[in-house]
């Protein structure tokens, strides 16, 4: 495993609750991302040529256009770029948890990831608040990466 930031140990929440929300599975391009999450690691692609990070699924570096990349572990730290509180019941599975927050977290490495913020009441969410990854095992196969507020020194 690449150790760019050192491996920050983050508690994996092995969920024994009934989990009724949709559970995604990996496709070919995102397989190491999902596999990493299961092991408590947030994995990104890093351009082999210019070193910039990008989200999985992007074949080409937007900066240098190189198609060569390797998987690299991210620190799991970031800040809350923006968020919303969904009240509309678009999907029946979410009816029970509505209103809920959805968020875009800007990782220290640069890319922004879609997620939810946990361990924080919706009314206390603030733009740019520091957050860290929480690995939430929602099924045998899938661990979702959520984020929670991060204490800063």
């Amino acid at each position: 495993m690449p150790e760019e930031h050192g491996w920050t140990e983050v508690a994996t929440l092995v969920s024994d609750r009934d989990y009724d929300l949709p559970i995604p599975v990996a496709d070919e391009a995102s397989e190491p991302f999902y596999a990493g999450a299961k092991e408590g690691r947030l994995m990104l692609l890093r351009c082999s040529q210019c070193g910039r990070y990008r989200l999985p699924g992007r074949g080409r570096c937007v900066d240098c256009w190189s198609e060569q990349s390797e998987w690299a572990q991210a620190s799991g730290r970031g800040k809350l770029y923006s968020f919303g509180i969904m009240h509309q019941k678009y999907h029946p599975a979410f009816a029970e948890v509505t209103p809920y927050n959805y968020a875009l977290v800007e990782l220290e490495e640069g890319p922004r990831l879609i997620t939810n913020i946990v361990d924080c009441p919706n009314e206390e969410l603030r733009t740019d608040m520091p957050v860290e990854a929480v690995f939430d095992a929602v099924s045998e196969e899938t661990t979702l990466i959520r984020f929670r507020p991060r204490a800063t020194g």
């Binding site: 496709d27 995102s30 699924g57």
Partner: peptide
């Protein structure tokens, strides 16, 4: 839901 697009569905966006 699959892959990175599947995260929209997973997180309710």
């Amino acid at each position: 839901p699959r892959g990175m697009r599947g995260l929209y569905t997973a997180f309710g966006m």
